[in-house]
Simulated scan of single mutants.
Amino acid sequence: MNLNNRRGIITGAGQGIGRALALEFGRRGGHLLLVGRQLATLTETARLVAAEGGTTEILVEDLTQSGAVERIAHAVASWSTVDLLVNNAGNVWAGRLELTSNADVHSMIDLNLTAPILLTKTLLPALRQSATESGSIILNISSGIALVGMPFYSVYAATKSGISQFGESLRRELTGTGVHVATVYPGATDTAMMTSQTAGAELGWGRRPLDDVITDLITALEAGEHEINTAPEGRREMQQLNITDPMAVDAALAPGLESLELAVRDHRSI
């Protein structure tokens, strides 16, 4: 796929994967609407994109709030082309299910699953119309947890599995329209979202540098891939085992459950 001169929206653009993708599309001549909750982080992303040669607009928005999707659509309504949507914004709360508040359950579902579905639905007419020129891209950021459900992440895993299946179904629905739907499955990545979690490689949570993850992601997207797995080889072995013998994964994780719970109990970005 040609990623040059894209015009579109990136949610969660203030940090991490969202900011890194904004820089990638910016250096390819993109014009981007950066959406996020913090003006300061979005402003910094915009500055970095400009240094790479791209242009931006900023919209401070909480995607879980009423009317947010409509305000995003209004912000790009005057654009002649909308051929990129990156559904990246997300949050996480880790811990035992019975200790998870109802508010945190709703927060994860609302931001990780409901918001990208509604935003995609609202922007799809513009994406379809723009696809007649150079094709449009819908890029959904899922998680490696959608491929191997990890203990103490049950709600987060549900939302990321949901966005994965949303993308797969929509991809098939849009066959032949020129709208390319891709889903990314990052493993543990060294971003600010992971700073409150201390699980390391010994517990199966070895982190990849953000730059490496983005390089793999962009390379796969340019190659036209739809399912983009950026996990390291060791993690992929567990993902394959989870397909062929899921109970073996249960057995492998069981001895480290107590240590894992301690390591992730403060993992929270809500």
Rank of each mutant, 00 (worst) to 15 (best):
I58F: 04
I58C: 07
I58E: 03
I58R: 02
I58P: 00
I58T: 10
L59P: 00
V60P: 08
V60L: 11
V60K: 04
V60S: 06
E61H: 05
E61P: 02
E61L: 02
E61D: 06
D62R: 02
D62T: 12
D62G: 08
D62C: 11
D62P: 05
D62H: 08
L63H: 08
L63C: 11
L63T: 05
L63A: 11
L63K: 02
L63F: 09
L63Y: 06
T64A: 13
T64M: 10
T64Y: 06
T64H: 08
T64F: 03
T64R: 13
T64N: 10
T64V: 14
Q65K: 14
Q65I: 11
Q65Y: 08
G67A: 14
G67S: 14
A68Q: 02
A68K: 02
V69L: 06
V69Y: 01
V69R: 01
V69K: 01
V69F: 10
V69W: 00
E70H: 12
E70S: 13
R71L: 07
R71I: 08
R71P: 02
R71S: 12
I72E: 03
I72Q: 03
I72G: 04
A73P: 03
A73E: 09
A73I: 06
H74R: 15
H74L: 15
A75C: 10
A75I: 07
A75E: 07
V76Q: 03
V76R: 00
V76C: 09
V76I: 14
V76G: 01
A77P: 09
A77D: 14
A77W: 04
A77C: 13
A77H: 12
A77R: 11
S78R: 05
S78A: 13
S78M: 08
S78T: 12
W79A: 01
W79T: 03
W79G: 01
W79C: 01
W79D: 06
S80P: 13
S80K: 15
S80Q: 14
S80W: 11
S80M: 12
T81S: 14
T81A: 07
T81L: 12
V82W: 06
V82Q: 09
V82M: 12
V82P: 04
V82C: 12
V82K: 06
V82D: 04
V82I: 15
D83R: 03
D83K: 04
D83P: 07
D83L: 05
L84V: 04
L84G: 00
L84K: 00
L84F: 02
L84Y: 01
L84E: 00
L84W: 00
L85I: 13
L85D: 04
L85K: 06
L85N: 01
L85C: 09
L85F: 08
V86C: 09
V86E: 01
V86R: 00
V86G: 04
V86F: 06
V86A: 08
N87R: 02
N87V: 06
N87E: 09
N87M: 04
N87D: 10
N87Y: 07
N88A: 13
N88P: 12
N88Q: 14
N88L: 10
N88W: 07
N88M: 12
N88G: 13
A89Q: 07
A89N: 05
A89H: 05
G90A: 13
